[in-house]
Design a protein around this nucleic acid. Structure first.
Lengths: 96, 96
DNA sequence: TATAATTGTTGTAGAGGTACAATAAAATGT
DNA sequence: ACATTTTATTGTACCTCTACAACAATTATA
């Protein structure tokens, strides 16, 4: 299967929202969108617009590629590198 | 005027494309979109989807917020800080 | 168990993003 | 000046994103 064409986008919305102990409603308020929209995003019904993605990234104070990616994320917990890494994953530039 | 709601998105598409000496057609090919779409984006007729924005960022090997922003960019040339800076601009987190 | 709060589902509607075609205008090269 | 390439414009069509409403299911809490 090819790799650069369209396809779904992975994200860490649920984790991030959980981390801050927010309800969808309150997150939606903070982002200025409908609470159902947050639901749609979280369960991958569709992707946010770039506009919304930027607002989300501002809200969480994280770079976009920390929240959205065309390749699946590893759990945030692993991202810190406490354990020895076996294989490379999710490296921005790497031609996989 | 408010600040966190919708609004146009600024970008550096023309500069980046110019830097690499690409035509819209060739950039479009590289991105897998119609060449007119690149035109629409460059002249701000509409914003790319998040999907496309991510592809663009991969293509140019730059983080998204280096290419797209909800606040106007300063010229790339200034971004390097050779000259003394007078005022802060375009700082990600700063509550302006 | 009852009640409220949160999340999921379905449907409708409107705005935005992308492709494609045709044609015009502008820039470039000879 | 001419031909070719690049960019702009207009119009049509389709699919995605977002809002909103109503209702069901789930989870939390008294």
């Amino acid at each position: 299967m090819s790799n650069s064409g369209p396809g779904r986008i992975y994200h860490r919305l649920p984790v991030l929202r959980a981390e801050r102990g927010l309800t969808r409603q309150s997150l939606a308020d903070a982002l200025g969108v409908n609470y159902q929209t947050v639901g749609y995003l979280e369960r991958g019904d569709y992707n946010p617009s770039l506009e919304l993605a930027l607002r989300i990234s501002e809200f969480f104070q994280l770079p976009i590629e920390m929240i959205f990616s065309r390749k699946p994320f590893r759990p945030l917990s692993e991202e810190l590198g406490y354990l020895a890494k076996s294989g490379k994953q999710n490296r921005q530039g790497g031609a996989e």
